[in-house]
Design a protein around this nucleic acid. Sequence first.
DNA 1: ATGAAAGCGCTAACAC
DNA 2: GTGTTAGCGCTTTCAT
Lengths: 345, 345
Amino acid sequence: MNDVAATAGVALKTVSRVVNDEPGVNAATAERVRQAIELLGYRRNDGARVLRRGRTASIGLIIEDVADPFYSGLSRAVEDVALRNGSLVFTGSSGEDPQRERALVLAFCARRVDGLVIVPAGYDHGYLAPELAAGTRAVFADRPPGPAVEVDTVLCDNDGGARTGVAHLIAHGHRRIAFLGDQAAIFTAQERLRGYRQALEAAGLPYDPALVSMGVPEQSRVTAAVAGALALDHPPTALFTGNGQLTMAALRALETLSTGPAVLPCRVTPGAEASRPAIVGFDDFALADLLNPAITVVAQDPTRLGRTAAELLFRRLTGETGPVERIRLPTHLIPRGSGELPPPA
Amino acid sequence: MNDVAATAGVALKTVSRVVNDEPGVNAATAERVRQAIELLGYRRNDGARVLRRGRTASIGLIIEDVADPFYSGLSRAVEDVALRNGSLVFTGSSGEDPQRERALVLAFCARRVDGLVIVPAGYDHGYLAPELAAGTRAVFADRPPGPAVEVDTVLCDNDGGARTGVAHLIAHGHRRIAFLGDQAAIFTAQERLRGYRQALEAAGLPYDPALVSMGVPEQSRVTAAVAGALALDHPPTALFTGNGQLTMAALRALETLSTGPAVLPCRVTPGAEASRPAIVGFDDFALADLLNPAITVVAQDPTRLGRTAAELLFRRLTGETGPVERIRLPTHLIPRGSGELPPPA
DNA sequence: ATGAAAGCGCTAACAC
DNA sequence: GTGTTAGCGCTTTCAT
């Protein structure tokens, strides 16, 4: 900037004015400055600017894994809102590891991000308190913070969604419905399990722990869980899966376990359909409509979740006060076939 | 930092030494400083640190859309490599818009990122030259830069992959193969089209422009393209799709266009299979193996692409010199059924 | 082992 | 309209 000023024969401040489009600069002077900028290939150093002004015009986003379609949809929404607000976004994947979540949040705070959108992996957010006290704003998305801090939160209607999905299966005649959930420590997994139980209760059906399996959404575990359930004396006639990854893994498990010979181009052996359990999954996913049968899901809207959280964050950053907000986003059932299969006669 | 120094009764520099684990501080003094830090909730301001030291320990990543599984896989890989190198990553989606690509790159540069991983939307990268001259390193991934700059590039073997996929269809007896590609302006789309033509030529088959359709991967366009091809006097018996989005859209189009009644739980009317065109797609995607028939693909490895690009970037950032690198990553064919369907007798 | 001073590149506050 | 000065929070250099 000094060099530019020297080359243009003006003072430092004038260059600053031109660079920032501040009013009160003679058009001719401004032009000279712009030429000097061009000549020297000058670029404003935003880091220094930030240091002086206090606002970094950047936010941090912590999710579980960008590579998961649910979170990448959320990411894109956050990014778009940030862009509209003139802000850049640091993204970090926690991989469901509270240590990494913490490290990322702290690293972002050290960069003095203006705010954070956090999908937490852990429950202890005491580490956030000093940052919040220092003025960094945070919005939790998809899962709430632990009791140590009180911040705006945008969640999905997990138990309501699960209730709807399970009630749908019940309405189609199922009485033995297995529940396949994510790790029991995860908030959304707990809420969805709760919804499952509520639906059973509302229909006067017993809760059978043998029909419930919670754990990591790995194929091997899911295959084992599905196989185990189907091998019960009174096997389930339907399956409710707690998220998109689990649904896909369960479908693959059913395919693997299917006893009939794999016949191309139609893998489902004619006549074998009837023995196939009905399935409803939490989360919509690409191609759910092209499977055979097409998959009935309880859809959330990751884009809306991200947008809502980011917009709330920017409203806070632009000074909106008021009590901590707790927003619940609705889900909706999309019947496609797999959830309408009747139980075997 | 001043406050900490005052509270601990030491000089500013001593606090700096403690914060940075520099040697040469009395253990007792260090402890006093640490207590003061704790007491005041002090956090080092990395922005100021960066201003002084010159390195921001952050990189920028520009992709087309985080929400696309191909790019989100790439993102995650870049993020992981960055983490291992103690760096944070700014992510931005260009949405295939050269203006936005440019704006994002420039914004990242203004933040003085150490380097960039760019999946370019445009071809004119003249705007990058001053940044490169200023010392910012860049690596292009998936698509090369325009002629204005010369930088490291990691690409996938697009024409080779397409050649393999199309040759596979030819080997299964197909003589009329349609090609459905992304917008003709996109580098990878061009290379894949080239591979398609090479495969035809190698087999002594004529190139028929009526069988080729390039454009945005929107469902309506794809449905129209597929319908158009199938309505030709000599319709194709097989289809090669140029990327994952196109493959999914084409499958949906085939489903929509399928003349037989939709019969649950098996949508493909018995007997109708024979009239279904074979299909091979570029890019693997979730559930490709569970469709009916399962989808044969030419798979790239987005994780490897991201990892390779990011590692190259960090090697450059740690001083590795040498000529500009141009890396090509292999693809591999995964036969699953759809690509092995024979043409109608 | 510790400290004082200078300055990274910029903008806010106030002259002129 | 334009320039001067101070200082954002830190690290570097050079003393002590």
